[in-house]
Nucleic acid binder design. Structure first.
Lengths: 257, 257
DNA sequence: ACATGTGAACTAATTCACAGCC
DNA sequence: GGCTGTGAATTAGTTCACATGT
């Protein structure tokens, strides 16, 4: 799928790798900081350090955008800021709606990083009628009933879901039906969407679990030999139990997040 | 670095791929939901659908943990929940501190998914003396002065940074110095940490920018030919300006998030 | 019959290392 | 001399397809 496209101009070829796209905002932030300090140029080495990546990766990333540097010198900060902004689509205004104005939704609405960089909170939407009209971050909350109208009136194509998990899929479907094609999901659920709709998820619980995994690793590294023996025994016991469908008193009741 | 380790037991080999680790929480969530509905077994196909991945990937992922399924049948839900929980280190208790109790920090403290799954908010820390003693999510906020003592007293190894960007690196250093080895960073900054410390970042602004990139792509796909011409012209103009360090009226003033 | 577990094939991403240009 | 830009080499991750075991 999505082949075709006999690249028509030499503007810039097809397909910037996804991994590269994900790093562009990082570079942009570092460059913006340099720009504010009026630094005129920067080398791949310096910029890479500021962005927390290695310089080969950065140069390769930039090579997908074009040849924007000068050999022997480095990159012009202002120019790169502009090019990356344009590549990311930040030279235009993106109206965004936030659905679910609980603790998290309110925090997001108040988050400064939102307003800057071309994103504008066009509306806050919540299912609770008691919230309707109440201003959060200076914006009056509107009721879910208005969702379709809000999307349409404001030409919103990006939606943020900050509802409880149970409501997320339904909200998602309404957003998509109303014309939203990009969703940032903070609810701890897998959203299913039709082709052509992008979803990105931000999930606190998952991040913590990944950290816990590595943390456990570290602890194990210290203990080493003795722990290894213990774990082996444990694994065997567990395997035996698993096969026989043992009592669940042992199995920790892990709650859904 | 980090080579060595002549795997001592056959318990389970070294190195579960990072991509797999990142999906385990997803599987766990789907399994937990099944467990609550008292579903006894599940096939890779079904579970993969629930987790939003394809079944080959899921089976491969599980193969790194061991052979926990039954051919011709599927996976025992309870047993898998236990195995994945154990692998992720969720069978133990992880005390966590949240530093920076603003809008976001408070939202995180209130977030339910935290308390479950082995994570426990051990303390809330803020630099504002006026916050000290005030309860948030039922936990009294403590002043930053106490940071080291809190980490030490509670044996905290995971810290969450929800401070403004400017304070994040400093907070990070204090956490690390006090013994924290895993950090979840919500501040829009690159943290630099010594080897052996894990950092994961959650960055609203970056996620939105990635969505904007794809969104712009979609729009461009419709416009196609005419847009291509325009962009080419634009690029040329920009190139000319960039070389000559043009007036910044044209360059969008992109703010740091 | 059926669904897992896994080598093998493939695709994506990273890193190396150096030619090319200022 | 120094730093970019990029092919080539390497490593990581995904998907295929089928042998294997129940």
């Amino acid at each position: 799928m999505a082949t075709g496209r006999t690249h028509r101009t030499a503007t810039r070829s097809r397909g910037i790798p996804e991994a590269t796209v994900a790093r562009l905002p990082l570079y942009l932030r570092a460059l913006t900081a340099l720009s504010e300090r009026s630094v005129p140029t920067v080398s791949s080495e310096e910029l890479a350090a500021a962005a927390g990546v290695n310089s080969a990766k950065l140069r390769k990333d930039f090579s997908y955008l074009g040849s924007y540097g000068t050999r022997g010198v480095g990159y012009d900060v202002e120019y790169l800021v502009y090019q990356i902004s344009r590549e990311l689509g930040l030279t235009q205004d993106w109206p965004v709606v936030i659905v679910g104005i609980g603790n998290l939704g309110a925090a997001l609405a108040n988050y400064g990083g939102f307003a800057s960089r071309g994103f504008r909170v066009a509306a806050l939407i919540d299912a609770d009628p008691a919230m309707a009209g109440k201003p959060v971050a200076g914006i009056p909350v509107q009721h879910t009933d208005e969702l379709e109208k809000i999307i349409d009136d404001n030409g919103v194509s990006i939606g943020v879901i900050a509802t409880p998990a149970g409501a997320a899929q339904q909200v998602c479907e309404r957003l998509v039906a109303a014309g939203v094609t990009s969703i940032l999901n903070f609810a701890p659920t897998v959203l299913s969407v039709p082709d052509g709709v992008d979803v990105r998820k931000v999930d606190l619980s998952i991040e913590l679990q990944i950290l816990a995994f590595h943390e456990q690793r570290k602890a194990g590294e210290e203990a080493e030999a003795q722990a290894d023996a213990v774990l082996a025994a444990e694994a065997e016991a567990a395997a035996a139990k698993g096969a026989g469908k043992g009592p669940d008193g042992d199995v920790p009741a892990v709650m859904p997040a």
